[in-house]
Design a binder for these strands. Structure first.
Length: 594
RNA sequence: GGGGGUGUAGCUCAGUUGGUUAGAGCGAUCGCCUGUCACGCGAUAGGUCGCGGGUUCGAGUCCCGUCACUCCCGCCA
């Protein structure tokens, strides 16, 4: 017989009737009737009820054994009587009549209960992560993550991709996020950087002729945390392909995501061919380049109304004269919403630091149109009619306005759009709604310096015939640069890469980098692209966010085994930690105290 | 770097306009209970009220500072 177990805690059923079995696991729960004791024994695979009564001389002993002790149980599989079957358990038809038991691993008093649906503070959860990870929900999430990753690997291989590792110790990249630096002992005063993404390496892999690459790639960025963003490290499904255009990449991802999301979630995918939305259009209709398409609300532009003489809302009119715009969101048939619905939105808007939210509701009074609400009185009847035409609103609808500079209005209304939809319950949470955001501009104006900078990846290929690009109007140049978005969450960006060195120098020069600095900063890349580079492109969906969507979790720590806390500390392993003088000396480092 | 929230028993939380000895559930310990699956019943132990300072006859409660955790803004080509 086996030493520890003949079966796992999740597999016994009626078919094993009367067998003598050996199970090992944790005591999940005891139900002590004094002369009869039930023990739920738990392992990675499930839970099995074990039972012992007073006649057994081990009774007192096992009764005193605390929860979360690891024990080995020897006993017989008994089929439960009909009235004692537990339908919620895969092993609920049977139980084990204990004949012998042995303690394999003792426990101290638990700092956090494992068998409980209570929420615990992050501090205690991360400090005792190994206990937290025993708990049902997060244990399940981690198993899901494992299955998702192995499914992705299998699918990618089926699609003809090869997995390659890229270096973890690499060079600091001049743009982008802050790097994590690693001092070099052999090269005093010099540092490696951990890769923010294997961007240059995956392009080098294409130049090296490997054609289709993927990797479940660790990426490191020293930026502040958010609920959906770990400080430190995260994982991307890094993909790069040669001899492809944008649509070839979309096709691969749509295939993969349809399979993946269908396999691991019951939620419906709204469109198996993901809609393509231009960046410009997305910013106009949704105010953001990561729109939640489950939300039916759209934004419209009403600036022209505030030039008319029969609209007297002077605050907006004055702002419009100075170059501001007015945009709005129409909510269908909300005339009977309680006053508090409107007041709460206005209050919330003020909490966000805005001047509040102007709104009106269109109603009729003896066939004449009226506009109710704080700014309703400023519109003439004719203005209202045109207003309804432009905004596609009808009697009974309400309209929420924002006025200001374009980026500001976009930002406000994108948040208002989400807020209203949540309040009116317009978002169907049982759906996945994917889309591609395409045609990103190559450049944008830096708000602080007012200089032209790359809006996304400087290695992206500009659109159009690259021999005839009009560089005199750089802000009009669009790139083969795209994002994939699901339910308002940005999963990834990608691009067709610029594989033509002369074009790259030109593009960098517009952003203020001369040839020499480009060669310095991207020497490996530029050099490689000078020796027969294939046209290529790729994408890198975030694994963590995919798993969050599939597990229906809002916080990345719920799907990460050993996450750092918000201050980028590991409370379990005590990292980061101080190092001793010798280590510093070897690395030629000195700590200056603040 | 900035703003919000939280911090009371091992865990999750309650604690009134400042007023006697700071409570509950779970857990722990002890006792009773032979069909539970969140078993039930009774008892006991367990507190620097995050930390420091102040106001007050009196502070868990009010004020100032500080620390920790968290959410958001900045940041994330």
């Amino acid at each position: 017989m086996k030493k520890y177990r003949t079966h796992t805690c999740g597999e016994l059923n009626k078919k094993n009737k009367d067998q003598n079995v050996l199970l090992s696991g944790w005591i999940n729960k005891k139900r002590d009737h004094g002369n009869l004791l039930f023990i739920d024994l738990r392992d990675n695979y499930g839970q099995t009820q074990c039972v012992i009564d007073k006649k057994n001389k081990l009774f007192k002993n096992i009764e005193k054994t605390p929860l979360e002790t690891v024990i080995k149980i020897n006993g017989k599989v008994i089929v439960r009587s009909d009235d004692t079957i537990n339908k919620d358990l895969s092993t609920g038809d049977i139980e084990i009549l204990i004949s012998d038991f042995e303690i394999l691993g003792k426990t101290k008093e638990l700092p956090l209960p494992v068998f409980s649906d209570q929420e615990y503070s992050e501090e205690i959860r991360l400090k005792y992560r190994f206990l937290d990870l025993r708990r049902k929900k997060i244990h399940k999430n981690i198993l899901l993550r494992s299955r998702v990753i192995s499914f992705i690997r299998a699918e990618m291989e089926k699609l003809g991709f090869l997995e390659f590792q890229t270096p973890i110790l690499t060079s600091s990249s001049p743009e982008g996020a802050r790097d994590f630096l690693v001092p070099s002992r052999l090269n005093p005063g010099r540092f490696y950087a951990l890769p923010q993404a294997p961007q240059q390496f995956k392009q080098l892999i294409m130049v090296s002729g490997f054609d289709k690459y993927f990797q479940i790639a660790p990426c490191f960025r020293d930026e502040d945390a958010r609920a959906d963003r770990s400080p430190g490290e995260f994982y991307q499904l890094d993909i790069e392909m040669s001899f492809v255009d944008q649509e070839d990449i979309f096709e691969i991802i749509e295939k993969l995501f349809n399979n993946l999301f269908t396999k691991f979630s019951k939620k419906k995918i709204e469109n198996s061919k993901f809609p393509r939305i231009t960046y410009e259009n997305a910013m106009f209709k949704y105010g953001t380049d990561k729109p939640d398409l489950r939300n039916p609300l759209e934004i419209c532009d009403l600036t022209e109304l505030f030039i008319r003489d029969d609209v007297n809302f002077e605050i907006f009119k004055n702002l419009v004269k100075k170059g501001s715009i007015v945009r709005a969101i129409v909510t269908k048939n909300t005339k009977n919403q309680p006053r508090s619905f409107f007041d709460n939105l206005d209050k919330w808007a003020k909490e966000q630091g805005w001047s509040g939210l102007a709104y009106l509701t269109i109603e009729t009074n003896k066939d004449a149109l009226t506009a109710k609400g704080p700014i309703g009185k400023f519109f003439s009847n004719d203005a209202l009619k045109d207003f309804m035409k432009i905004s596609k609103s009808e009697v009974g609808d309400s309209v929420f306005f924002a006025c200001g500079k374009k980026p500001e209005v976009e930002k406000i209304l994108s948040q208002v759009r989400t807020k209203i939809a949540r309040q009116l319950n317009l978002i169907n949470d049982e759906k996945f709604s994917f889309c591609w955001i395409v045609d990103y501009p190559m450049y944008e104006i830096d708000e602080i310096s007012q200089k032209i900078k790359f809006s996304h990846n400087p290695f992206s290929m500009p659109q159009g015939d690259h021999k005839n690009i009009d560089f005199s109007q750089p802000l009009k140049i669009k790139a083969y640069q795209y994002d994939i978005v699901c339910n308002g969450i940005e999963l990834s960006s990608g691009a067709i890469r610029n594989h033509i060195p002369e074009l790259m120098y030109k593009l960098f020069s517009i952003a203020g980098y001369d040839k020499k600095s480009v060669e310095e900063k991207f020497s490996g890349m530029i050099n490689a692209l000078s020796y027969g580079p294939p046209p290529h492109g790729g994408i890198a969906p975030g694994i963590d966010r995919i798993v969050m969507l599939l597990a229906n979790e809002k916080n990345i720590r719920e799907i990460t085994m050993f996450p750092l806390n918000q201050n980028a500390q590991d409370l379990l392993m005590n990292a980061p930690s101080e190092v001793n003088e010798n280590q510093l000396k070897e690395l030629n480092l000195k700590i200056t105290k603040k």
